[in-house]
């Protein structure tokens, strides 16, 4: 991997993380902070897009460099596991077990289904 590609992937991750902050803030002002909808929306949409990027790359419709910048960089930095996990534990600590289950397992199922849909779309386009 060239140094320029490495830096491009890293900077794309920074852009993804900043987009996550902006979108989470927007969702928080619209829907309130009682349930962490922002992280769910971010992780499900990011999984759909990474599925699509992966499908397009498997189909040779996307150059390998672009699939790295968009997949590992932008979408890797946009989606987050640590915050999702932290919010789930906080919900459980507040004895909101159903909300914790929705944030833990619900987000996971929705994200895998979204990724599968994206993958299917990316593969079908070929």
């Amino acid at each position: 991997m060239t140094p320029l590609l490495f830096l491009g992937i890293a900077a794309a991750g920074g852009v993804g993380a900043a987009a996550r902050l902006a979108l989470d803030g927007l969702v928080r002002t619209r829907l309130g902070g009682a349930f962490p909808y922002g992280t769910t929306i971010i992780n499900v949409s990011g999984s759909l897009l990474l599925g699509l990027v992966t499908g397009l790359a498997l189909n040779h419709l996307l150059a390998p460099e672009w699939s790295l910048v968009l997949g590992i960089g932008l979408l890797g930095g946009y989606t987050t596991f640590s915050t999702a996990s932290f919010e789930t534990v906080r919900l459980a600590q507040a004895h909101r077990y159903l909300a914790a289950l929705a944030n833990g397992v619900g987000m996971l199922v929705a994200s895998v289904v979204a990724a599968a849909l994206g993958l299917w779309a990316g593969l079908a386009l070929g």
Binding site: G14, A17, T80, S82, T83, S111
Partner: peptide, 20 residues
């Protein structure tokens, strides 16, 4: 937190690798 660890960890790869 939001930046370093948020960008270090990833959910989209978890979902996509599971779908694969």
């Amino acid at each position: 937190g939001t930046g370093l660890l948020g960008g270090f960890t990833t959910y989209s790869a978890l979902a996509t690798d599971s779908a694969l």
